[in-house]
Amino acid sequence: MKIVVPIKRVVDYNVKVRPLGDQSDVDLNNVKMAMNPFCEIAIEEAVRLKEAGTATEVIAVTVGKSDSQEQLRTALALGADRAILVETDSLLEPLAIAKALAKVIEAESPQLVILGKQAIDGDNNQTGQMLAALLSYGQATFASEISIDGDSASVTREIDGGLQTIKVSLPTIITTDLRLNEPRYASLPNIMKAKKKELDIQPIDAMGIDTAPRIELLSVELPPARQEGIKVESVEELVSKLKNEAKVIS
């Protein structure tokens, strides 16, 4: 079984992102970039399925600028067998990314596609579901447990009230939630080996898809700041403030 894992290069989760001075966009000058954390979970799950003998090949894919090769190399160091960069100079919206990924998946015809549930930059939580629709596949989003059983997958999903288990026919799209697994770190020998693995670059223009933006970014600003609070000295003072000043308890 072949697994395709689409990943994304994003601002490292420790970076506090701020708007540019003219508020035209976020300021991404000289910030640390990394693989989106949910994508790491997706790679880990695919590699574990390969280690367990369920999968035979893991292919990492990204749609982005040339520098996204860095994150593909990380995916290769974590255990992916080969990687594909669909190269574009534009910043694409999730729908356009899903269209490009759909082309790659049609060409590779994997049985399983595993993605992160959301990227921590735009916080959109869309690409996996869109990809499933474009390919007419079923979808199992927010997965915390996956088991492959012949021509279907049984997936436990994190939903608001608890857990839901569904069965989806293969090929299918699965998006990862936090508790699916704990991703490994790449070892130095694996990082060295990853440099020799195949990384195929495909220009997005050759795909014949409509990637024109549908959304115009008008401005980016800081959220309203909270008024500075106070420190209380004791539990007694806290309770008194909550009762008499904030009036939120009685």
């Binding site: 992102v17 976020v26 930059d121 970014l217 980016v220 600003e221």
Partner: peptide
Amino acid sequence: IYAGSCIATV
């Protein structure tokens, strides 16, 4: 966007 660090108008 970005965990609420910024608010985008789209």
